[in-house]
Amino acid sequence: MPGSEAAAAIICRGLSKTHPGGVEAVAEMDLAFSEGLTTALIGPSGCGKSTLLRLIAGLDMPSGGTVSILGRTPAEQRREGAISVAFQDPSLLPWLTVQQNVALARRLARQEPDPDHVARLIALVGLDGFAATRPAALSGGMRQRAAIARSLVTRPRILLLDEPFGAVDELTRRQLARDLPPLWQGRGTTAVLVTHSIDEAVTLSDRILVLSPRPARIVADLAVPLPRPRPADLDQNPQFRAIASLALAALSCG
């Protein structure tokens, strides 16, 4: 089984998912995600990586197998407020301000209001001065920042990122990928990132799992031993290029 189970925060055993209509998205997968690390799942479009993330979050029920998060079921962990999901669509509520959108996550997670923490996170994601703004007046990148702030405000132990920078332009995407990960990395948060960008996976993660076309199975398990914090010109680094070409090779023959 890939990943050491001793320090695993998320353990999937025999996980499978067949959608109604008979499409097999995930077939018999065994997986473990190490505590405190960021793991990227990359694979071709429609390979089932988002489905895998939804199974881990418990948003979809598996057709077979189990998911265990820190020894408990996803449903139990969700009720504890231990899980946060950042979606590809920032999914901010249009009638709430940035501050209210971020604070909403604490209410949903049954946590005490903490206006200072909310304000600090809004500043940390670079939205200082926009706390009272509604989403319609923000750019795509700013909405994405607000959504990341919302997903972090509950201090989740498990952070699930479903192509969180997928809907913004390339420049903004690079900047978000550089600015935001330090907010959860090195703080004990176990993160799973779904992406189809090899560069993003190498930049953000400690480990990359390359998935095959549907039904998803793991074709490569790559460590990313690059030091943190990772500089802006990381993609010029030979080690970065080496890992990226390994991932590309795995993706091409998967």
Binding site: L59, S84, S91, R110
Partner: peptide
């Protein structure tokens, strides 16, 4: 209500009352 908003509510372990109160009513 977009499905992703419902996912947001569910991801914090909340159910239909929260959907109604936080999302659907507005």
């Amino acid at each position: 209500v977009p499905a992703v908003w419902l996912d947001l509510v569910h991801s914090y372990g909340r159910g239909r009352f929260s959907e109604l109160w936080h999302l659907r009513a507005r």
